[in-house]
Design a protein around this nucleic acid. Structure first.
Lengths: 267, 267
DNA sequence: GCTCGGCGAGAACGGCCCTCTCCTGTGGCG
DNA sequence: CGCCACAGGAGAGGGCCGTTCTCGCCGAGC
């Protein structure tokens, strides 16, 4: 371990040496990264093109205009491609949701905004709106933010698999989202907006899981795909107030939020 | 739709006709049901034997001592076998959980008992305790309750797939559990134990989903597989009380439950 | 005895992931 | 200008799996 010290030499000498090597390697690296990105883009396009369907490696290869051989040079297997896609999706979703609550100051409101926006993102076939069908491919490494966000719902499909079959990698992939949410919880707790004594890490897991897989709840309860919009509010309201009978000492803000959530379905 | 009325004839004539046909078919039907059950049992044994792993049709066929041909006579595909297994698992889980709260009277306590017991059932590798390795196969159709319950955790693995790929069937399979939970909610609401104005159907979906896939929450938050026991209480407590800052009118039970949840990890 | 339906055995097929080999285009070098 | 190294495309092939199909056995009824 830490065996690179074998090659240590004078700092300045090694520095220009590295520079030279880097200059020689840089184009190669750039090309490699672009090729890799082409695979990622192709996969994203496929997921966006027919959501719910599982693409095949062949399709990715064909769409990317590269070869199977190259694919397995860059990814140890299909699984790694999916993992990379998923990581990027989590990263970009986190960024998007953070941007959404950018101007908000109240910690509880920030928590609410984060939750409901993440809910919206994870909702299938209810993305940012635009299709991104033939979106530009081959940007730099960190460029395609909205494409990733759009595919976030399709990602949830894969998230299950990842969560059950490769928990460690899943945890790593979720890390940015988790730490973000946890710090939002911390801030809310510091402000006294939520109760004390909660295990924020665990709450984070429960909430994110519930939000991400909320569509399952609709399916389980048989309400198919209709409800669409209002359940973000409903979920948030359940999350904050719980089921317990109100002791009638709640501040009125809770009340009004609850009222908006459940307007006696006319069905 | 509703096209079976075409074959309607005189009631009495068709009745003895049916009787005769039934008498002729009955042994055949019995044999058929037993064969079918052998497939189901074999699949359950496989799931119990190596949880998490996905069995193959071949394995089921071999273990059941029957032939591939028979398999496809009884099931349109692997998918239908899984669906049958899943339906049975839901049924038996529902029964088991209902039995668990059998002597309880207080509606809120019944709700709590149902929730936490279902949580326990869905917890992976934390079944009723016994292994059921070479459990008896070939009972009647509705007999193998504990085997099904034990495999419930492995079922969750499949539940995801079913929920995303065949929502209608999934909803049908979940129906008994859903209606049971919903009626528990209704009872609790009638007793004033939970707030008014909640959409019980939707709450049912959300809660069942959260409980069933709670292990995902642990994975997401990175707490791996350690937490085991206490989170059933934690989840129930979150569910009833929510996140909102307590107005200091809660009974002290809430406090003590929360304390157990967050012992400041020494890592 | 002879046929006929149920069923086991298992070959065959197609789709998938992945590996491996062949071969071409390209760029550096004497 | 000829040569070599090598990245990368094309695609055949192997293994696994679900699914289908064919064959042959065996017991039951005419």
């Amino acid at each position: 371990m830490s065996g690179d010290s074998i090659e240590e030499e004078n700092p300045q000498e090694s520095s220009w040496r590295e520079m030279a090597v880097a200059r020689s390697l840089d184009p190669a690296r750039a090309r490699a990264e672009q090729r890799l990105q082409r695979f990622l883009d192709a996969a994203m396009e496929l997921m966006a093109a027919s959501p719910g369907r599982e693409f095949t490696v062949q399709e990715v290869v064909e769409r990317s205009g590269q070869s199977l051989r190259s694919f397995y040079q860059y990814f140890a297997g299909k699984h790694e491609l999916l993992l990379a896609l998923f990581e990027e999706s989590v990263r970009s979703s986190t960024a998007q949701v953070l941007a959404h609550i950018d101007g908000v100051d109240d910690p509880l409101e920030r928590l609410r905004g984060f939750t409901s926006e993440y809910y919206r993102i994870c909702r299938p076939s209810r993305g940012t709106g635009r299709g991104t069908e033939r979106g530009g491919a081959g940007r730099g490494v960190g460029g395609s933010a909205d494409g990733a966000a759009n595919a976030a719902s399709a990602m949830a499909d894969f998230a299950q698999q990842l969560l059950t079959r490769h928990p460690a990698e899943a945890a790593r992939a979720f890390a940015p989202l988790v730490s973000t949410y946890e710090s939002l919880l911390d801030a809310a707790a510091d402000a006294g907006a939520i109760r004390d004594g909660l295990d924020h890490r665990r709450i984070t897991g429960v909430v994110l899981q519930a939000v991400m897989f909320n569509s399952f709840a609709d399916t389980i309860s048989g309400s198919s795909v209709e409800p669409a919009e209002p359940s973000a509010e409903g979920l948030w309201e359940l999350l904050t107030s719980g089921l317990a009978a109100a002791p009638a000492t709640k501040p009125s803000a809770t009340k009004s939020a609850a009222r908006r959530g459940t307007p006696r379905r006319p069905s």
